[in-house]
Amino acid sequence: MSTTEAVTRDEGADRWADVRDLPPSAKLVAKVLDYNETLSQSQLAEETLLPPRTVRYALTRLEDADAVESRFSFSDARKRLYSLKI
């Protein structure tokens, strides 16, 4: 393994350090957000197959860990859109 590969691998590990100790549902939501730029809570529930209440809990935990950011949807101000910060 080259030095560049080792550094890249270490940076990837550090990237997920804030999420590592969170519940499995929060890890799943974070991974889905990693694959998709921005999703609403209902879209996350659909993608993860988790109940909406569990997604809400996972997002709260991720926000507390400063791993996600949210903003209001321009098309529907009642919805919030979430994206991964890490």
Rank of each mutant, 00 (worst) to 15 (best):
M1A: 12
S2R: 09
S2N: 12
T3Q: 14
T4G: 12
T4V: 13
T4K: 12
E5M: 10
E5P: 02
E5V: 15
A6G: 06
A6Y: 11
V7I: 15
R9T: 15
R9H: 15
D10P: 02
D10L: 13
E11G: 04
E11I: 12
G12N: 15
D14K: 04
R15W: 11
A17N: 07
A17H: 09
A17T: 08
D18L: 09
V19A: 07
R20K: 09
R20Y: 15
R20V: 15
R20F: 11
D21G: 08
D21C: 12
L22R: 05
P24D: 14
S25F: 10
S25R: 04
A26F: 05
K27T: 06
L28V: 14
L28S: 06
L28W: 08
L28Y: 06
L28P: 02
V29H: 02
V29E: 02
A30L: 04
A30I: 04
A30M: 08
A30P: 03
K31W: 13
V32A: 05
V32E: 02
V32W: 01
L33E: 03
L33R: 01
Y35K: 07
N36I: 04
N36L: 04
E37G: 13
E37R: 11
E37Y: 13
T38G: 06
T38F: 10
L39G: 00
L39E: 00
L39W: 01
S40P: 01
S40H: 02
Q41M: 14
Q41E: 12
S42V: 07
S42E: 07
Q43G: 07
Q43P: 02
A45S: 12
A45G: 04
E46S: 09
E46D: 07
E46N: 09
E46K: 05
E47R: 06
E47G: 00
T48W: 04
P51V: 10
P51N: 07
P52H: 02
P52G: 04
T54C: 04
R56P: 00
R56S: 05
R56A: 05
A58R: 01
L59Y: 01
T60I: 09
T60G: 10
R61Q: 11
R61I: 05
L62Y: 01
L62T: 00
E63R: 03
D64W: 09
A65E: 05
D66K: 03
D66L: 06
D66V: 06
D66W: 03
D66C: 03
A67P: 05
A67D: 03
V68H: 00
V68R: 00
E69M: 03
E69I: 04
E69T: 05
R71T: 12
R71M: 08
F72N: 06
F72I: 03
F72G: 03
S73C: 08
S73E: 07
F74T: 15
F74A: 13
S75K: 13
S75I: 09
D76M: 06
A77S: 08
R78W: 09
K79W: 02
R80T: 15
R80F: 11
L81H: 01
Y82F: 13
Y82S: 01
Y82D: 00
Y82A: 01
S83Q: 10
L84K: 01
K85V: 14
I86K: 02
I86V: 15
